[in-house]
Simulated scan of single mutants.
Amino acid sequence: MEEGQLRLEPVTPDNVGAACRMSVRTDQQDFVAPVSWSLAEAYVNPDTAWPRLVYRHDAPVGFVMGAFDPANEIAFFRCGIWRLNVAADEQRSGVGSYAVRQVLAEGRRRGFARATVLWVPKAGGPGPFYERLGFVPTGEVFHGEVVGAIDL
């Protein structure tokens, strides 16, 4: 898949329906909240949440929500990825990697030196994906989820 075919767009009244209809594979549903839940979380955290749709041409193929909260008392919630959903039929096409790189670029643009992500440490979960992208488990666990970090 050519990364140049992908772009990020804000969630708007025109695309929110498509965003909410997007779903991951059935075997991944225990690892990530539906996009509609993420958008509700973004709505109540407008100063922190950074929700974006990933498009290929004119079709939304993924959703990512970064979080940027430099004053958060919990260090691993200051800059990172809150959610990543890739449409079931778009798995392994570069959409997830592209989305993660865009959140990391936004973190750099905002002056952060480190980004984090949390994942459920179960077989079939996203841990190996994040580790391939350079995230390293910190040894911290939060509500049963591994905290991974990457230097920006």
Rank of each mutant, 00 (worst) to 15 (best):
P34A: 13
D14C: 12
I81F: 03
P51V: 09
E140H: 05
G125H: 05
Q5H: 10
R92L: 03
G127F: 03
G80P: 03
V141E: 08
E131W: 01
E131D: 05
H57R: 14
A40D: 12
D14G: 12
F68K: 08
D14P: 03
R78F: 04
V24D: 08
C20S: 12
M65Y: 02
Q91F: 04
A59I: 14
L104F: 01
D151P: 00
G144H: 06
V117R: 03
Y43R: 11
Y55W: 14
A115G: 15
Y98W: 07
A33H: 02
P121K: 11
A33L: 13
R21P: 00
Q91P: 06
P51T: 09
V35M: 00
E145I: 00
R114A: 13
E106N: 09
H57E: 15
G148A: 11
G17V: 06
S36P: 01
M22V: 12
D30W: 02
F76A: 13
P51F: 05
G144V: 04
R92C: 10
I74Y: 06
R56V: 07
S93M: 14
Q5M: 15
L6D: 01
Q91T: 13
V95D: 00
Q102D: 11
P121L: 12
P128T: 09
R101F: 02
Q5C: 06
A19S: 09
A87K: 04
R56C: 11
N85Q: 14
Y130T: 11
R132P: 02
S38R: 09
G127L: 05
P51Y: 04
S23C: 11
W119Y: 15
F112P: 05
V24Y: 01
R83N: 13
E9W: 00
N85T: 15
A123I: 04
P13L: 10
E140G: 03
F129I: 14
